[in-house]
């Protein structure tokens, strides 16, 4: 796995992300500044980390989505390259048109920073092959705008095509309004694009990758990606 982590002004999770990627792959990812116009050669996954790019001005992720590097990310995704966006990275992918929908203010207007439970809906994607379908993982979340919204047709398509990859649930995997803490449509926490190579998710798997952090439930995502990419290489 040769990863590139894109660094936008105002993001703050790039080091956590780089650490998780290195832990899974043994390789230091390339850190790519947003003003670059090309990705380093030989990259097989691009990661947009979390934080507050441009201070969340205008709309979360809106300005970062128009940064020079994003044309290269778009071209990379169009060729089938893997792209992962976490938290602000998910917001950027939606704003860039690489994923449908938008992340709105949390339903109860609060910034929510705590561990949440996610049901992994599919294990047959490069991002989730480290998990079993239906498995529930515990990962931290930290956002004020994670309330996934899309028009009814888009949501129906996402559901119909099995493109909802992570959903907020109770620890036993049951859906209930009190566990859908940000009010997201259908408790959607993460989605994939039509081709299956671009994933966006609000919670932070990169913050649960070692025993010292609590449960290491986020590790499966990075381990799965590393296995997928090393097999492909």
């Amino acid at each position: 796995m040769k990863a590139a982590v894109v660094v936008f002004p105002g993001i703050n999770r790039e080091c956590d992300m780089a650490r998780a990627l290195k832990l899974a792959s043994g390789r230091e990812p390339a850190m790519v500044w947003h003003a670059e116009t090309a990705l380093p050669a030989g990259i097989d996954i691009v990661v947009l980390p979390g934080g507050f790019s441009y201070g969340d001005y205008l709309r979360c992720g809106a300005i970062a989505a128009r940064a020079p590097i994003m044309d290269a990310v778009r071209a990379f995704a169009a060729k089938g390259g893997l792209v992962l966006g976490v938290c602000n990275g998910f917001q950027i992918l939606c704003e860039a048109g690489l994923l449908p929908g938008v992340l709105m203010r949390n339903a109860r207007l609060k910034f929510i920073c705590r561990n949440v439970y996610l049901r992994v809906e599919r294990s047959d994607t490069p991002f989730t092959r480290g998990y079993n379908a239906g498995q529930v993982i515990c990962v931290p979340t930290a956002h004020g705008e994670g309330n996934y919204v899309a028009d009814a047709g888009t949501v129906a398509r996402l559901e119909g095509e099995g493109r909802v990859i992570f959903r907020y649930t109770a620890p036993d995997g049951a859906r209930a309004p009190e566990w859908n803490f940000n009010g997201a449509t259908n408790a959607i926490a993460g989605i994939i694009n039509e081709r299956g190579n671009v994933l966006g998710m609000m919670p932070h798997p990169e913050n649960h990758v070692e025993a010292a952090m609590g449960p290491a439930d986020g590790r499966g995502l990075f381990q799965g990606l590393a296995e997928h990419l090393d097999r492909a290489a």
Partner: peptide, 9 residues
């Protein structure tokens, strides 16, 4: 269209 509004919402 390109920046000021997100025409999804």
């Amino acid at each position: 269209e390109k920046l000021l509004a997100n025409t999804v919402i």
